[in-house]
């Protein structure tokens, strides 16, 4: 089914960087292949120039998950099965492990990587909203330089990031949160098993004495790329948690989304629903913090 394509299997990350320097533009990195392989089959234009696939799944250095100096590091090739099962992530970044567990099927999660999900940058990429609310920083390497960049700056438009063809995403760094945060990853699909998000939301809320200290929310599948909704976040801070505020926030969410997307075919359904479910999530988080 798949056109003539060459494979390159680097022995190390360094080797890969050199290879990308020399052959950059016609090379595509392949990790789990769960986006690339169906994409090639369906003749997706974003893969039409690909002559060589550079396989990185076997590079163990890209698979580690660990916490050190207050940050969680996740290697780019960590699969969603690994992420879902990882105890550190469950404890400190539950929204991410929840999202990981809701991606595709077991077969997909066993292959699909977090970097592949981010670099593919589909509007419905489920790991992105949690990564955004956790202020994820992306680690990038090329033969030219190593640098880090906040995730929100990396995401350009649907199915596109700012990564250059000779750059490799090596991992993510997530600062461990202070105490007192509660949060939820919400995903709405058309069916219960193996479903692409119609709407997703990641919400983090830190409450103290009934008022909101910190508030973070990121959208998925309802905006062209996932974004943090900073207007709402700022408005919420230092206000008293409760249904009145939550209704306001939900309405603001509706207004912000419509500003970003305009009227689309799906808006009459999605816009009211995302407001309603955002409100429901906030009420639930608030109730949980009251009942402890």
């Amino acid at each position: 089914m798949i056109q003539d394509i060459d494979f390159y299997r680097p022995g190390s990350l360094e080797e890969l960087l050199t290879f990308l320097k020399d052959h950059g533009s016609n090379v595509k990195i392949i990790a789990g292949g769960t986006d690339i392989v169906p994409g090639l089959r369906q003749k997706a234009s974003r893969f039409s120039h690909v002559k060589t696939l550079a396989d990185i799944q076997h590079l163990h250095e890209l698979k580690t998950i660990e916490i050190s100096d207050g940050h969680l590091s996740i290697g780019s090739c960590a699969t969603f099965s690994q992420i879902e099962a990882n105890a550190l992530i469950r404890k400190h970044f539950p929204l991410l492990s929840c999202a990981a567990g809701l991606i595709g099927s077991t077969q997909i999660r066993n292959r699909a990587t977090i970097a592949g999900n981010v670099v593919n940058n589909a509007p419905c990429a489920d790991s992105v909203p949690p990564l955004l609310v956790y202020d994820a920083i992306v680690c990038v390497r090329s033969h030219r330089e190593d640098y880090t960049v906040p995730l929100n700056e990396l995401l350009l438009k649907p199915y596109q990031t700012r990564l250059n063809a000779d750059e490799v995403l090596t991992g993510f760094r997530l600062p461990v949160l202070a105490d007192g945060y509660r949060g939820e990853f919400y995903k709405l699909g058309r069916r219960r098993g193996v479903s692409i998000s119609r709407i997703s939301l990641a919400v983090l809320m830190q409450l103290q004495g009934g008022s909101i200290q910190d508030f973070r929310v990121a959208s998925g599948a309802i905006t062209p790329v996932s974004v943090r909704l900073s207007g709402i976040e700022e408005y919420a801070r230092d206000r008293k948690a409760g249904s009145e505020l939550f209704a306001q926030l939900a309405q603001q969410l509706g207004n912000e989304i419509i500003k970003i997307t305009g009227m689309r075919w799906s808006t009459p359904y999605k816009l009211p629903v995302v407001q309603q479910m955002f409100y429901q999530i906030l009420m639930k988080l608030n109730d949980e913090s009251v009942t402890g």
């Binding site: 249904s243 939550f246 209704a247 939900a250 309405q251 509706g254 207004n255 419509i258 305009g262 009227m263 808006t267 009459p268 816009l271 009211p272 629903v273 407001q275 309603q276 409100y279 429901q280 009420m283 639930k284 109730d287």
Partner: peptide, 28 residues
């Protein structure tokens, strides 16, 4: 159902929920 007849229009401002459109979680 939370979007009533109002939600049927294609006018964006009508798609913003009113205060009493929000449902108590026990009624969801």
């Amino acid at each position: 159902l939370s979007t009533g007849s109002e939600g049927n229009g294609d006018d964006a401002s009508k798609l913003i929920l009113k205060e009493n459109d929000f449902i108590a979680s026990s009624d969801l």
